[in-house]
């Protein structure tokens, strides 16, 4: 093999590598499939004002409660005007109420399968609700059914006080505030347990 042939072979090999490199670079530049990023940059920043306009929730620790106070007598007036028609006045009714009773002035017992007397009274705030803050949160967001969201914070505070009173949780004359409401210990709280089902053979 002469020198010329050797140089030719060398040049051809070099050319091959150069072309390969160009092809690789061009292919990678033309690649259209993007890899998934951590963030897409979609959506706009939420302003503090728009968040607070929507953020109506109240937590058991009182976060979200507006400054204010509620009075039992004022609550009674509002209840009788806006709630009683559906939720009743704690008396036993012949016809089922459109809304469930929130407090009852009677106890209802029936014989259970073991022949013992079992309390069949309706589940009420006093017998079933574990947190008092839930009353404020729920009444403000969803009641009355025909005009949800129409009550002022003041009205909701008054109603909360009245409902707690009718369930024998606060005594007459008690005024509730954003400070005192989260501290109220509800009778049903101690009955609450977390779900412990996890499949498998144990039936819970």
């Amino acid at each position: 093999m002469n020198n010329r042939a050797l140089i030719n072979r060398y040049v051809i090999t070099l050319l091959f590598f150069v072309i390969s490199a160009v092809v690789i670079v061009v292919t990678s530049l033309k690649r259209t499939k993007a890899s998934y990023p951590e963030k897409f940059g979609i959506g706009r920043a939420a302003s503090a004002a728009e968040i607070s306009a929507l953020d109506i929730d109240v937590r058991p620790d009182g976060k979200g409660l507006p400054v204010g106070s509620g009075d039992i007598a004022a609550g009674k007036l509002i209840y009788n005007t806006k709630c009683l028609a559906c939720h009743g006045d704690g008396k036993k009714t012949e016809v089922k109420l459109p809304g469930e009773p929130l407090f009852v002035d009677y106890a209802e017992f029936k014989n259970n399968t073991a022949g013992q007397k079992a309390d069949q009274s309706p589940k009420t705030i006093g017998t079933y609700w574990p947190y008092a803050t839930t009353i404020f949160d729920y009444v403000r967001r969803a009641m009355p059914y025909n005009a949800p969201g129409s009550l002022s914070n003041q009205e909701v505070y008054h109603l909360t006080a009245y409902l707690l009173y009718r369930n024998h949780i606060i005594s007459s004359g008690t005024v509730i505030t954003e400070k005192s409401l989260p501290k109220i210990v509800m009778p049903a709280k101690e009955k609450y347990v977390e779900d412990d089902r996890e499949g498998g053979t144990a039936l819970k």
Binding site: V58, D61, P130, Y131, T134, Y138, Y192, V193, E194, K204
Partner: peptide, 27 residues
């Protein structure tokens, strides 16, 4: 922490053995 909304306290909870009320039974 959870908010203890009406739908996870007064509703969607069930009485279980020993007079307890079971909460956050999701599955």
């Amino acid at each position: 922490q959870p908010y203890m909304t009406r739908e996870e306290t007064s509703k969607y909870t069930e009485t279980v053995k020993g007079g307890k009320i079971r909460q956050f039974s999701f599955v």
